[in-house]
């Protein structure tokens, strides 16, 4: 059926796709989570671009610093207003790569991990738009959102409230190192995720992946 495709899929995509062939575990201790964050030129999914991606993995209660990811992207779109937030100017000190290379590296890194981000819809949306620009399908990973998981720890329904990462950092006494760098936020999210999992496990000793997933209809909004 390959002749239907305008664009042949690159090797890295095939490798990435193949990691989803087996059955995904549902018990939390067996799952590799990747906590990630993107720094972008702005908040518009269509017009803004990714400046950097930071990620770190978490498995069975342990944040593995040896299994981390960090990259900086060359920018075609530049928004001087957000420089104040992320500190990334067009010509920074970091080695920069183009979007396609970053994508390849990111997918090689995440494989079939369960992705976790704070307000994941935005970060996943940004990555999916990169994929789209390169004529590739959307991310295949299961995605969790720490802001949603936080709401699960609350007894009452608080679903309409918006909980910023800053708010949760204070609530959970997480030190604000490297806030607003992709890696720094990924690490902070990882600590937050670890704490949230502990809290939920106390409530539900048999907690598994299904409990953490966002409702389907919300995924549909991505």
């Amino acid at each position: 059926m390959a002749w239907f495709k305008k664009h042949p899929q690159p090797d890295f995509w095939m490798r990435y796709k193949n990691t989803f062939l087996g059955k995904q575990p549902n018990e939390l201790s067996a799952i590799r989570f990747v906590l990630f964050d993107t720094e972008t030129t702005g908040l518009n999914l269509n017009n803004d671009r990714i400046l950097s991606i930071g990620a770190v993995s978490f498995k069975d209660g342990v944040i593995k610093i040896s299994d981390q990811f960090e990259c900086y992207l060359e920018q075609s779109v530049f928004n001087s207003q957000t420089v104040a937030i992320h500190g990334l100017v067009r010509t920074g000190k970091h080695h920069k790569m183009d979007e396609f290379e970053a994508l390849e590296r990111f997918l090689n890194y995440i494989k079939n991990a369960v992705l976790v981000a704070h307000h994941a819809a935005f970060d996943v949306g940004m990555i999916n738009n990169v994929l789209k620009r390169h004529h590739l399908p959307k991310l295949k990973n299961t995605v969790l959102d720490t802001s949603f998981i936080y709401k699960k720890t609350k007894s009452q329904s608080v679903s309409d409230t918006h909980y910023s990462l800053d708010y949760l950092i204070k609530e959970f006494h997480i030190p604000e190192h490297d806030r607003h760098t992709a890696s720094g936020d990924a690490y902070i999210t990882a600590l937050l995720f670890a704490k949230l999992l502990s809290l939920l496990k106390n409530k539900h000793p048999d907690l598994n992946l299904s409990h953490l997933k966002t409702q389907k209809k919300r995924i549909g909004l991505l």
Binding site: G61, V62, I65, S66, A194, S198
Partner: peptide, 11 residues
Amino acid sequence: ISKRIDVLYVE
């Protein structure tokens, strides 16, 4: 050393 550290959150 830091690059190979595991970080644990303990209740």
